[in-house]
Design a protein around this nucleic acid. Structure first.
Lengths: 226, 226
DNA sequence: AAATATATAATAGTAATACTATCATTTTGG
DNA sequence: CCAAAATGATAGTATTACTATTATATATTT
C-alpha cells in the first residue's frame, strides 16, 4: 500500500496553492533541492525558474518571495514530523519510550528510506532544517509572521513533546523550554558534528547514536522525578 | 580607572584593520547598530555609508562584504565574553560556582552598565548575537571559514566551558556538546521568550532568572557524578 | 616647508537581485 | 467547444553588491 500523506498548509504562505498544479509542485520540490544546493542566500527565483524551465514571474504567482517558500518547506517538514510522532507513538503508554522514540525521529537522517514522493523529499527537507531552519524566524518579521500563525507547526510539535514530558513528570518546571531545546539541538548538534566538530563530542562520521544518547541524557536527567 | 580592553581580531576578517582609523571604528560601531535596527538581510553597506556620511567604496576598503563585518562583530563579542569569563572566574576554585558564573554572564543582558566605549557597545553586541549569531556559520562557506579560523573565539569559549565541566566531573561524556548547548540555548531561549514565547516557559517580561535556572538544571542534572 | 605617501571622497559603471506589469498563448474544466 | 484560468514571453524598475578611476584631503618623512 502506498499512502500519500497530505498536509494542510497555512494559506498565508502562498498566493496560489502549489499543491494544486504541476508547476506548483515543481516549484516546491525543486525549490527545496536548489536551496539545499546553493544555500538560501544564493538561491533566487530566477535560478529556480531556469532549473524548471519556467519564468520568474510564474514562480512569483505562487510565492510572494523566497522567504515564504522557505517557511512553506519548513512548515511542511515540522507537520510531517508531528505526523510521524503521532503515528509511531500511537498506542504507547509509557512516556519514557514515547520520548525516546521522538528523539530518534528527530535525529535520524531519513536517508533513502524516507518519504520521497513526487512532491517533497523527506531527506532533502531534513537537510533544509539543519542548514536553514532558524532562518525562518530570525527576521524582523517574527512577530508579524507569528501572528499569521506561520510557526504553528513548530509550536504544535513543541507542545506535543512538552505534554509528553508532563506525562512523564507533571512537576517538571520547564517542559516547553526543554522541548524546544531538544528540537533545536537535534539539528544543530548534527550540523556542528558535520561542520564544526570542535563544538561537539561526536566524530565526523555518522554518529547519530551518540547524539541520541546525549539528548536522552539531557532530557531524562532533567525531568527525572525528585 | 577606565581600561580599554583590546581584542586581537583575526586578520582574515578585514582588508584594512578598522580599529586603526576613525572611519574604521565608525564602520564597526554604526554597522553593529544598523544591523540591529534593520536586521542583517535588510542591512547594506550603502545604507551604512549614508548613516555615517561616507561612501560605499570606502567601506569596501575595510570589509570584503557584509558577512565579514557580521563575523567580525560576532567574534568581537565572543572574545569579549571569554575575557569576562576569565576575569570573573579568576581565583575561583569551585567548578560549580564557576559554571554558574558563566551561565549568568551568558544570559544576563548587559544593559546600560555594559561596556559602551566609542567602539563596540556590549549591549548592541548582545542583541546581535541573539538575532544574527547563527547566521555567521549557517552558510555554504562554513568549512572554508572554519579553516580560516573565523570561528575560533566561539570554539575557544566552548572549549573553556568544556574544561570547567571536566573539572566538575572528569567522567562526563559530552562536555563539548553540553557547552555548545548552553551557549546556543542562552541566546535562543531568550529570543524565544521575547518573540515566540510558546516555545518556552518564561513570561515575556524579563525573566532572565528563570532562563538561568533552566540552563543550570540542564547542566548540573546531566553532569552530576554517578 | 616641500615632497611624498596614504586615506578618503566623488563619481561612474556593471551584473545580478527582487520584484511588478502587460499581453499573448496554452491548458483546463464545464 | 467555449470561457476562464494558468502559464509564457517580454519588458521594465529600483536596489544590491560590488569594482574602477580620479581627485582631494591628511599624515609622514626629509
Amino acid at each position: 500500500m502506498e499512502l500519500d500523506i497530505r498536509i494542510k498548509m497555512n494559506e498565508k504562505l502562498f498566493l496560489r496553492n502549489p499543491e494544486e498544479s504541476v508547476l506548483g509542485k515543481k516549484i516546491v520540490k525543486n525549490g527545496l533541492i536548489l536551496i539545499n544546493k546553493l544555500g538560501f542566500e544564493e538561491f533566487t527565483f530566477k535560478k529556480l525558474s531556469i532549473e524548471i524551465s519556467t519564468t520568474e514571474a510564474s514562480i512569483y504567482r505562487y510565492f510572494e518571495n523566497k522567504h515564504r517558500l522557505l517557511v512553506y518547506l519548513i512548515n511542511w517538514y515540522w507537520s510531517y514530523i508531528e505526523y510521524k510522532v503521532i503515528f509511531y507513538t500511537n498506542n504507547m503508554s509509557n512516556p519514557e519510550i514515547k520520548l525516546k522514540t521522538i528523539i530518534k525521529l528527530l535525529v535520524e537522517d531519513p536517508g533513502d528510506k524516507g518519504l520521497n514522493s513526487d512532491f517533497i523529499s523527506e531527506q532533502e527537507a531534513y537537510q533544509l532544517i539543519m542548514w536553514e531552519g532558524s532562518k525562518s524566524y530570525l527576521t524582523r518579521n517574527v512577530s508579524k509572521d507569528n501572528k499569521d500563525r506561520l510557526f504553528k507547526p513548530y509550536k504544535d510539535l513543541c507542545e506535543r513533546i512538552s505534554c509528553t514530558i508532563k506525562e512523564y513528570n507533571p512537576k517538571y518546571k520547564f517542559p516547553h523550554s526543554m522541548a524546544s531545546t531538544i528540537l533545536e539541538m537535534a539539528h544543530s548538534q548534527k550540523f556542528f558534528m558535520q561542520n564544526l566538530p570542535a563544538l561537539t563530542d561526536f566524530s565526523k562520521e555518522q554518529d547519530d547514536k551518540k547524539i541520541i544518547l546525549f539528548l536522552e541524557s539531557i532530557l531524562f536527567n532533567s525531568i527525572h522525578l525528585k
